[in-house]
Nucleic acid binder design. Structure first.
Lengths: 330, 330
DNA sequence: TTGTAGGCGTTATCAT
DNA sequence: ATGATAACGCCTACAA
């Protein structure tokens, strides 16, 4: 046996015309019972399976596939997004093809090209931290395109982002309202746009509460949990901080490590929920932006565009909410 | 403009033959410099992108796509597997299409059909808990097929599984060696094959240490963490247990909840690592089977088969290791 | 209800 | 080095 059986093989086996097999396979009703039986028997005998790739190249036919590019599928943050998108895609009868950019601009661009060449009907992208493709010079037509989680300066696409500044402001304000005057900001590099927004929200809250910002209390190089832990131990020992806004969940985990190691503890609020948050004592309060909702929203926007929604592209900002669990009181 | 530009459009624009464009796009070397320039200009002008779906229908050509079916992409356990497979696939220039079965047999079967019709070159499957497709009557040819994490009775496919029994035996033995004589088994339904294997390992260890099994100490209906917590609180209060083997990480989290709520604590070892394990005090010891390694192994097997490895299909059993962190001493 | 002819975008064959 | 022509597997006209 050389390759996979084709419709033609089935037609020959069943002594019918190719088109009749096509009709049968596609569930069209106008087929005589005897022929239908013969065709099904031929299909079973040959182990025929239709070739959707071949079908999809016909004009008017689509691949019924969505593409998703994220940083790293192993990261629970991204996989939650991916899961929400996959689930929504599945509801619409779509398959999801996923690529991880590892936050690398080149890899990201390769994935964009590959997925477009694969003719996905829609593309959802979490842009990498580093410089990526200049979207403005990407020639149309591009499929339904949605940027997720991070804003991109390209008005031909929709975007779904969380209210990072608003959430950071909520958290910092909660700490200030409980008397915090030396509240630390602990986060990752400001090359990451979400970090810049969260720092801006932190500053807004400080200003609103009449607190002068102390640059010594702002840490923006905590890439891993242990980095954050080291920085926070130092802040606790040398800077007399009385509150911590942990700008991502790695920073929050780092704070827990620092508390454990140093025996000291100050009020703490994190950004983005994490599994250990409810298990520690007291439980860690966090700003939660619902990434599941973000993923679903992005997918639904794609499907809206696919079904003809031509309204102006826009950026959808999803609210961030403060989940207080106790750690904000120290 | 009607559709996407095609090779034909490029050929007309550049005043060359179709085949010459094909050669250029596919990086064949035997092309004159002047034509190459004209073709590239035409490509840029038209915004041409090749259609891999169309290319893949030619005989001998493949889709360079892998399919993966798991329970739920939002679940960190599965997404870790998915991430490892995606990473390996990416190294081989392959894209990964993922579907979640939600542990539903029907949905699982649909995904198998869909991915096969999409002509993925290889298929990696975590079979759902419930009854799934009868693989034995699936007509060949099937793409390179690997079952992951759970054994399936089908000798036409490879399988990669963890040593569940061995790991459970290690954990239970560690508890018994520390004096445990009333060691509880807390896990999910025995409909799940891994649970059966872990229970078997638990029993083996008890026998080896001369401990008579007490059926009252075996819980096999803890589906969620809270279920496990409730059961464990009861065991602590009414059954005087002196050790807990938590047969999955939800059960381990449940144990932590029960300890917190009841104030009591006994030696504990879990199965499968989880983020909170190292943050609690004492840190939770676990049997760890490296699911990243499992995913990589599965993908590498697929690629080996794709490149012509025709050796007998086999089941690869990956070792489970005991990671002691303190909780085994109570 | 069934069949015939043609084309989708690409690559392969075989010429020039 | 370049090109004309025929597939690939399927579907959409348009007959019969």
């Amino acid at each position: 046996m050389s390759g996979n059986p084709t419709m033609n093989d089935v037609a020959r086996e069943a002594n019918v015309a190719l088109k009749t097999v096509s009709r049968y396979v596609n569930g069209e009703t106008n087929i005589g019972a005897p022929l239908a039986t013969r065709i099904q028997e031929a299909i079973d005998a040959l182990g025929y399976r239709r070739n959707l790739a071949a079908a999809s190249i016909r004009p008017g036919r689509t691949s019924r596939m969505l593409g998703l590019i994220i940083g790293d599928l192993s990261n629970p943050y991204y996989s939650t997004i991916a899961g929400a998108i996959e689930s929504t895609a599945s509801d619409h009868g779509y398959l999801l093809t996923i690529g991880s950019s590892d936050e690398d601009g080149r890899r990201h661009d390769q994935l964009v090209d590959r997925l477009m060449e694969q003719r996905v009907d829609g593309l959802i992208i979490v842009p990498p931290t580093g410089a990526a493709r200049d979207w403005s010079k990407l020639p149309p037509p591009i499929p339904a395109l949605v940027f997720l989680d991070r804003p991109v300066d390209f008005d031909q696409a929709d975007a779904v982002v969380a209210d990072n500044a608003g959430g950071a402001r909520l958290a910092t304000a909660a700490l200030a309202e409980r008397g915090g005057r030396r509240i630390a900001f602990v986060g990752d590099s400001l090359d990451i746009s979400t970090m810049r927004e969260r720092l801006a929200g932190y500053r807004t809250a400080l200003i609103e509460h009449g607190v002068r910002e102390d640059p010594e209390l702002v840490v923006t190089d905590a890439h891993r949990s242990v980095d954050a832990a080291v920085a926070i131990r130092r802040l606790l020992n040398e800077r007399a901080i009385d509150g911590i806004f942990a700008a991502n969940n790695r920073a929050a985990v780092g704070a827990l490590m620092a508390f454990r190691d140093s025996g000291a503890r100050v009020p703490l609020i994190g950004f983005d929920d994490f599994e250990a948050a409810t298990l520690s004592t007291p439980a860690v309060s966090v700003v939660s932006h619902d990434i599941t909702l973000m993923g679903e929203a992005a997918a639904e926007i794609v499907f809206a565009r696919l079904s003809g929604d031509t309204s102006a592209r826009r950026t959808h900002v999803l609210p961030a909410t403060l989940v207080l669990r106790g750690s904000e009181d120290g």
